Amino acid sequence: MNQDVSHLNFEKLRTELSAEAGKGYPMFIAGIIFWLLMGVGGLFVPHQIMVWIYLFGIGLVLPLGILVSKVVHVNFLATHNPLSTIGGLVGGIQIFFAPLIILIAYQQPDWIPFVVGVLTGAHFLPYVAIYRSKGYIFQTVATVLAASVIGFGWMDQAYSLIPFSLIIVYSITLFWLMKEAKVVKKEWTIAEKDISIRM
């Protein structure tokens, strides 16, 4: 894809980022892996240990997402695009929730799956605008709703129920974003060919 984006307007920047970064779908593969490990761990590992696995494990999701993007040949970072910087800042918000999560880990460890689920779900909302994606609306609402319903109704089973419910949400989001990315990549490829023909 064209690396010089200085001449592009917002819509073109968004379209190029969506096509090049696959609308961020590699992060959902990483998220599914994270929640699968948390779910299996929640069934077999004592919750006192799982709290700390959550705290350290959540920090590995971004590097895992970058690794996945390399495997599936998606330029997830797309650093030449200014909107990618905004996306990085949105993702980076999570690190500032660390004091809250650590406090909850010490005071209410049973709440950790609920808190991590809600925070991760909520932080994806700005990607609705960055990628112009209805998939992110679904992901945010469904993740927060699923984590909240289980958190309020079955908090004692949160370590097993929340991860597996979020695997379902993340899987639906993954396929939704892959479908959106395929369409936008096709449109972007046609637009690039059209520009090169005119030149």
Score class of each variant (00 low, 15 high):
70 K>Q: 15
132 R>L: 08
170 Y>L: 15
161 L>N: 07
180 E>V: 07
106 Y>N: 09
145 L>S: 02
169 V>D: 08
58 I>H: 03
149 V>N: 04
120 T>Y: 05
18 S>W: 03
161 L>R: 13
61 V>F: 06
167 I>D: 02
171 S>F: 12
95 I>N: 06
161 L>W: 13
139 Q>A: 08
154 W>G: 02
42 G>V: 01
9 N>Q: 03
121 G>Y: 04
102 I>F: 14
82 P>G: 10
104 I>H: 01
11 E>F: 06
75 N>M: 06
52 W>K: 04
179 K>G: 07
46 P>W: 02
154 W>H: 13
62 L>Y: 13
146 A>K: 08
86 I>G: 06
151 G>H: 11
34 F>D: 02
8 L>P: 04
17 L>E: 01
11 E>H: 12
8 L>N: 03
119 L>S: 05
174 L>K: 09
133 S>W: 11
25 Y>L: 01
129 A>K: 12
140 T>H: 05
68 V>K: 12
27 M>D: 06
69 S>T: 11
60 L>W: 07
108 Q>R: 14
43 L>R: 08
104 I>K: 03
83 L>K: 02
41 G>S: 04
45 V>D: 03
169 V>I: 11
135 G>Q: 08
1 M>Q: 09
68 V>I: 15
196 S>G: 00
146 A>P: 03
100 L>F: 13
169 V>R: 08
7 H>A: 12
12 K>D: 14
40 V>Q: 03
197 I>F: 14
20 E>I: 11
116 V>C: 11
48 Q>C: 03
70 K>R: 15
